[in-house]
């Protein structure tokens, strides 16, 4: 929070932002490309593998947004840990409800 930023750091930061932007853009194009290619060319094939790739791509985008745009990468390590560690609860929520969701499908059928 120093109110004065020297020129070198400034240029470095701006460059980092644009680099992140480009990465996010490329990943997004890749994702949309995957989705559309499935729709146009492989419609009757299962989408599961593509879905995995798209989830990974999205996680990558999320990483760049959090790390660069939200500047978290440059905070103290303990602060990063405190903010990201609780996300394991979400991971467990997601796993548990996914298991339940597929189980409901089995029950209903």
């Amino acid at each position: 929070m120093s109110s004065h930023l020297d020129d070198a750091t400034y240029h470095k930061q701006v460059a980092a932002i644009w680099r992140a932007t480009i990465i996010i853009a490329v990943v997004t194009v890749f994702e949309v490309g995957l989705a559309l290619s499935h729709y146009f060319f492989f419609y009757h094939h299962p989408k599961a593998i593509i879905n995995v790739f798209m989830v990974l791509a999205t996680l990558m985008k999320a990483f760049y947004i959090i790390a660069e745009f939200m500047h978290l990468k440059y905070e103290y390590r303990s602060f990063i840990i405190i903010l990201t560690l609780p996300l394991i609860f979400l991971v467990w929520l997601i796993i548990a409800l996914s298991v339940e969701g597929t189980f409901w499908l089995r029950l209903i059928q």
Binding site: F89, W92, A96, V99, E100, F103, L107
Partner: peptide, 22 residues
Amino acid sequence: SFLVWAHHMFVTGMNPFLGSVF
């Protein structure tokens, strides 16, 4: 405390495997 919530739901017909983890 965040990993155990479904122990309130053992008999709701949840997946028995998931129940065992909980």
